Amino acid sequence: MELILKRTYFQDGTNGEIFLDQEKICCTIELPWRNNEKRISCIPEGRYQLKKRYSQKLKFHILLNDVTERDLILIHPANEALKELKGCIAPVLQHTSAGKGINSRFANERLKKLVFDAFAKGEEVFLKIVPLAPLSHQ
């Protein structure tokens, strides 16, 4: 299964939408693009394999594998990228402004169910991150 994350970049954050085929699954928020600097930038565009991961804090969640010069890039709930994210991706139900959204826990559970159901069937799952419009800075 391949999910597509279409991004729009802003100074205060990155907004996106995740699709499976042509169906929108959820919106996303991330940090702004800052040259892939750890903890202050969203990750580069590309295709990443998703894995199931467990931690005490987040319980079961999604990990993006093999992100260039980064580690522990997760998909987890957050409603304000600049305050709650350090490079990860947060599903949200709706954007409220650049890097901000609402109902992240609900959107995260929706996305997790889709991905974990695919894992249960033995499928590999990938997330392909693309710009909504071509960028001049990447």
Rank of each mutant, 00 (worst) to 15 (best):
K128W: 02
S55H: 05
G87H: 04
R47E: 13
V67Y: 00
E17F: 04
R53V: 13
K83Q: 09
S136W: 13
L5Y: 07
I73G: 01
H76G: 05
Q22W: 14
A118V: 06
Q11S: 15
L50G: 01
H95G: 01
V130C: 05
K113C: 11
L74M: 14
R105S: 14
A107Y: 06
K38M: 06
D71V: 07
S104N: 08
F19L: 10
L58T: 11
K24M: 15
N79M: 04
L58F: 09
N36F: 05
L114R: 02
I102R: 08
I75N: 05
K121C: 07
L111F: 04
H76R: 03
A78L: 00
K128I: 01
L64V: 00
L50R: 02
K57P: 08
L93W: 14
I29T: 06
H76I: 00
N108H: 01
Q56I: 13
S55C: 11
C42D: 09
I25M: 02
P134R: 09
I89N: 00
K86S: 12
Y9N: 14
N15K: 01
E2V: 12
F19C: 09
I25T: 06
L63N: 10
G13M: 04
E2R: 11
I29Q: 04
D117M: 02
E23W: 08
I129V: 12
I25E: 05
N103G: 15
V130S: 02
A120Q: 09
A81R: 01
E84L: 05
K86W: 11
F126P: 15
G16A: 09
Q94K: 14
P134H: 03
R105D: 15
K121W: 13
F119W: 04
H76S: 02
P134D: 12
Q138P: 11
Y48A: 03
I4L: 09
G46T: 01
H137Q: 11
E123K: 15
N103D: 11
